[in-house]
Design a protein around this nucleic acid. Structure first.
Length: 114
DNA sequence: TGTATGACCCTGA
DNA sequence: CTCAGGGCCATAC
């Protein structure tokens, strides 16, 4: 099996490891998957993720705490809906940090609800 | 082969 | 806070 499929599987695994209600940034996921500086590629991997893999893609957001989809798009609304369903607050396309002083995609945020 | 386009990120102004 | 600039890299055409 080639490295590409391998890396993609690692990304899905990392995303599946994000607990409900928590969020991580693309860059964070990339690092945890052993693919530093490849945040962009994480997006490609998520887009290619089969529904059967049950990858919680909605828990992955930009490093700035923003939903990456264009405001108003169908997926943007879908992601906001799912996050709110897990107890998160989304305002102006931005996910409000769960912990004071932390950013939504930080490692601190990741550990927050473990 | 070359260019354009993103579900990105970081730094500096 | 916003904006630009540079880096990154798979995909589409």
């Amino acid at each position: 099996m080639d490295e590409r499929a391998n890396a993609m599987a690692r990304v899905w695994q990392v995303v599946r490891a994000i607990p409900p209600g928590a969020t991580a940034s693309y860059g964070e996921v990339a690092r945890r998957a052993g693919l530093p500086r490849r945040a962009r590629w994480v997006a490609v991997a998520l887009k290619a993720a089969p529904a059967a893999q049950r990858v919680p893609w909605h828990r992955v957001i930009g490093a700035n705490g923003r939903i990456a989809f264009p405001a108003g798009s169908r997926l943007h609304r879908e992601q906001a809906r799912r996050l709110r369903a897990e107890g998160r607050t989304v305002a102006q396309g931005r996910v409000v940090a769960a912990a004071r002083g932390a950013r939504p995609g930080d490692l601190d945020e990741w550990l927050w609800k473990r």
